[in-house]
Simulated scan of single mutants.
Amino acid sequence: MRFHREGNTIMLVTALILLGLNLLAYYFLFRGNQTAVIALAVVSLIAFGLVVQFFRIPKREHTLDEKLVIAPADGTVVVIEETEELEYFKAKRKQVSIFMSPLNVHVNRNPLSGVVSYFRYYPGKYLVAWHPKSSTENERTTVVIKQENGIEVLMRQIAGALARRIVWYVREGEPVKQTEEMGFIKFGSRVDLYLPLDAKINVTMGQKTKGGVTVVAELA
């Protein structure tokens, strides 16, 4: 297992703050109170562990197949429905949404290979990720990947109540490869996929997904 570069600064700052707090407690605040010093040290280790686990990148064998749409993130499937996609397609599409809790791996991956035919970033609010308006009012990105056969899939990164920054590594007009990193969302979020109406959905409501591994849909 390795850790994502987006967490380097946060992990270092957290470690320094916790170290300083524990030194302050040992020499001044709880001087002579060994129980309080040990309790603070344990709480600090747990807090640091929670921050570190958020940026972990587990080693996995990724699923690669041009006819499959692969889960772009770890999380739980919270939406499977036919809906009107109004930003890019302006037509009906099948939507699959994956909610990412703070305990999930937060790397986002390309669901398929192709060329980025459309990209937009929108600053916005920080409603809870499962709120109906989060997909149109929260901080978010919209990425459309077009395959050689002309099929397009839209992916939307949506910041949640705890998230304050979305990171992306793709640009409009550039080629991307399936399961490679396309971005990162810090501390709780959601990812939406908008698929062709004839796509066969391979996940169910409440199912846990693994980014780069779980097959979300089969393309016709």
Rank of each mutant, 00 (worst) to 15 (best):
K92C: 01
K94D: 05
V96I: 14
S97A: 15
S97K: 10
I98Y: 11
I98K: 07
M100N: 09
M100H: 11
L103K: 14
N108I: 13
R109E: 09
N110Q: 11
N110Y: 02
L112D: 09
G114W: 04
Y118H: 15
R120C: 02
R120D: 12
Y121R: 06
Y122G: 00
Y122V: 04
G124S: 09
G124V: 04
Y126H: 15
L127D: 03
V128Q: 09
A129N: 01
W130T: 14
W130N: 14
H131A: 14
K133E: 15
K133Q: 15
S134Q: 05
S135P: 00
T136M: 11
T136P: 00
E137A: 11
E137Y: 10
E139I: 03
T141G: 06
V144A: 12
I145C: 06
K146V: 03
I151M: 09
I151G: 03
E152Y: 01
E152S: 11
L154A: 14
M155D: 02
M155S: 09
R156S: 03
R156Y: 07
Q157Y: 09
Q157M: 11
I158Q: 01
G160E: 03
A161I: 13
R165Q: 12
I166W: 04
V167H: 12
Y169K: 13
V170N: 02
G173Y: 02
P175Q: 09
K177A: 11
T179L: 03
G183C: 10
G183P: 08
F184S: 06
F184R: 02
I185R: 09
I185Y: 06
I185V: 14
K186E: 11
S189V: 10
R190H: 07
Y194R: 00
L197N: 08
A199W: 01
N202C: 15
V203Y: 12
K208Y: 09
K208P: 00
T209M: 10
K210F: 11
G211E: 06
